[in-house]
Design a protein around this nucleic acid. Sequence first.
DNA 1: TCCTACAATGGACAATGTCTAAGTCAAGCA
DNA 2: TGCTTGACTTAGACATTGTCCATTGTAGGA
Lengths: 139, 139
Amino acid sequence: MSDLLERLRGRGWRMTAQRRVVAEVLDGDHVHLTADEVHSRAVARLPEISRATVYNTLGEMVSLGEVIEVATDKRAKRYDPNAHRPHQHLVCAQCGQIRDVHPTGNPLSALPDSERFGFTISDVEVTYRGLCPSCTAAA
Amino acid sequence: MSDLLERLRGRGWRMTAQRRVVAEVLDGDHVHLTADEVHSRAVARLPEISRATVYNTLGEMVSLGEVIEVATDKRAKRYDPNAHRPHQHLVCAQCGQIRDVHPTGNPLSALPDSERFGFTISDVEVTYRGLCPSCTAAA
DNA sequence: TCCTACAATGGACAATGTCTAAGTCAAGCA
DNA sequence: TGCTTGACTTAGACATTGTCCATTGTAGGA
Ligand SMILES: [Mn+2]
Ligand SMILES: [Mn+2]
Ligand SMILES: [Zn+2]
Ligand SMILES: [Zn+2]
């Protein structure tokens, strides 16, 4: 049973076959799928699930704070079930692989007050781009 | 005369009215426009410029390293002429305002070798999200 | 078992981005 | 100055990503 599904159930979500499948598809580590990728995988388990439902369900999971949207891909949003441990991303520019990484210290501390221009900062998104080990070797 | 235009000219670019206008629209500080915003502003100066040309021109400027694409907006790519000084972005979640900021130190140093998983990292993109001074006051 | 509010569906529509075939023109050269 | 030519621009078709709505279906409580 998926952790994500457990958490959603605990919030009084009405449980449907569609929501269960979306949650199962998103379960795991280093999962950063686009909405369409989620839809393809969901269709493999529940052929009649619609795109609209996938978008709706992902949006609700994001509103509940159980999934986060990441912008590692400049094209489509990616959905990440690892919402309860702050982390950052390592992206291979060649093959597109995405890994979670956990930096030391608070990333906000690198930004001095003089560079905050009066903003109240609530969130920092960090993406490291480069080549993964196999793409580095192939280059 | 725009600095960006000067640099492009120096690279043997064929100069056309369309390219000139796109470069002029992108000139300045804290400029982070979407392709459509660039197109709207370009049309104000050169009514017949096409969307395709704006996309082509932006793509070429990016290839030449004179403009960078930023993912602060999860929807559309934004184009930033400030390509020669590494910097990061401060984004107001309320009004969408984007400011350039310059952190202390190298952002890569926060990521220990043990968290690099063999990747060769060439670039780091950092986005701080929060509320700008006026949106903070209004909240 | 039945009700009903909430959820799912299909398809239209909107926003963003890519591609191509045909016409146009900047820039080097006679 | 006036050709020539390859690079550039254009309109619009098409692709991808995301949103919305009217209708139909159903989870879960009475
Ligand atoms: Mn992640
Ligand atoms: Mn910038
Ligand atoms: Zn790779
Ligand atoms: Zn603001």
